[in-house]
């Protein structure tokens, strides 16, 4: 069913939610987010699954059509029990985001521990074995998204430090030591993203700039309301905004987006751009299941460029 005059720019798949805890071969507390990549003609997701004990790990899921997924029973990234690292990741690893870079795939994820969130980095060539590359930030920051290419000769990432609730960019020569941090986008007073914002999907390179989906939060008396928006960043200097959607591209409306452990939440860690420009967006709903939606690159760009107020 196509919904040309639907309620949101992103059209939900009629089979939503795509993955719930009932689809797993094991018991768990919830499934909160999915990183996404198309690898050797297969759709791969990296799911954040919370165990019944309450810790987070990253599990793989595979599909031939991008809609129906087989979920692995073993995590590909799980918190370490090494003594001096436990303090950094006792709550677990979550929100994996995949970036193709230099003939490999890099996975950024949030490491949650006693000191808050910090960013972790891993790499893989086959999505079977993952090599952890250590921590690439201090606390308290999350939502790390690596750019799929160097910018002016340097690696770059987006992220959301807790302080200020804005999206920032940092640079590195070696993916280990980072600097040059600059602010990219901030919450907008009077808008749906007025309380804090954060990176959602890793940047996609387009002729007009880097396309990102981000999440925006509005605080309410019942708690935060998480929606998704989109923005385009300057190719050579991504701390410069080219465009930003005035309106959300996806808001919690369906029952699986309204009801769950964290109600009224849509939150994405990955999308797949098909050859014809179709976009498959994978998003967590209410921190409890994974759903998917469709749009096109052209529709996202148009929405970003129609945004009035900047930044």
């Amino acid at each position: 069913m196509s919904r040309n005059h639907g309620r949101d720019l992103i059209h939900r798949w009629e089979g939503n939610p795509a993955i719930t805890i009932d689809d797993l071969g094991f018991a768990c507390a919830d499934i909160s987010t999915a990183g996404a990549v198309k690898f050797q003609n297969e759709y791969l997701l990296l799911l954040t699954i919370q165990s019944l004990e309450g810790t987070y790990s990253i599990y793989p899921a595979r599909s031939s059509d991008g809609r129906h997924f087989q979920i692995g029973n073993e995590p590909v990234l799980a918190p370490t029990s090494t003594d001096n690292k436990v303090q950094y990741e006792q709550m677990g690893l979550l929100d994996a985001r995949v970036t193709p870079l230099e003939k490999e795939y890099y996975v950024t994820y949030d490491v949650w521990g006693h000191h808050g969130f910090r960013l972790g980095l891993a790499r893989t060539k086959n999505f079977k074995t993952f090599k952890r590359q250590g921590y690439i930030s201090e606390p308290d920051t999350k939502g790390g998204c690596l750019f799929p290419g160097k910018i002016k000769g340097r690696y770059a990432r987006l992220e959301r430090p807790w302080e200020g609730g804005s999206i920032w960019i940092s640079y590195s020569d070696d993916l280990r030591h980072w600097g040059g941090s600059e602010i990219v986008m901030s919450p907008r007073g009077g808008y749906w993203d007025c309380t804090r914002i954060g990176t959602a999907t890793p940047p996609v390179r387009l002729p007009i700039g880097w396309l990102i989906i981000y999440y925006g939060v509005k605080g309410t008396s019942a708690g935060p309301l998480f929606r998704l928006g989109a923005a385009i960043l300057n190719l050579r200097n991504p701390s410069k905004l080219v465009g930003r959607t005035d309106e959300p591209i996806l808001s919690p409306r369906e029952i699986y987006e309204r009801v769950g452990d964290l109600p009224n939440l849509v939150y994405s860690c990955g999308l797949i751009v098909e050859k014809g420009g179709e976009v498959k967006l994978y998003y967590g709903a209410s921190n409890s299941c994974i759903a998917m939606g469709f749009t096109t690159v052209d529709a996202l760009v148009k929405a970003c460029m129609n945004g009035g107020d900047r930044p």
């Binding site: 000191h115 808050g116 980072w178 040059g180």
Partner: peptide
Amino acid sequence: DRPLGLGVGSIWLSRSPDLINWGDSEM
């Protein structure tokens, strides 16, 4: 330095090859 995650104010240590880019941070 003193990052402030979850309100926990601990002293951390970081290293740099050039004083500009920093990493290998530990509590």
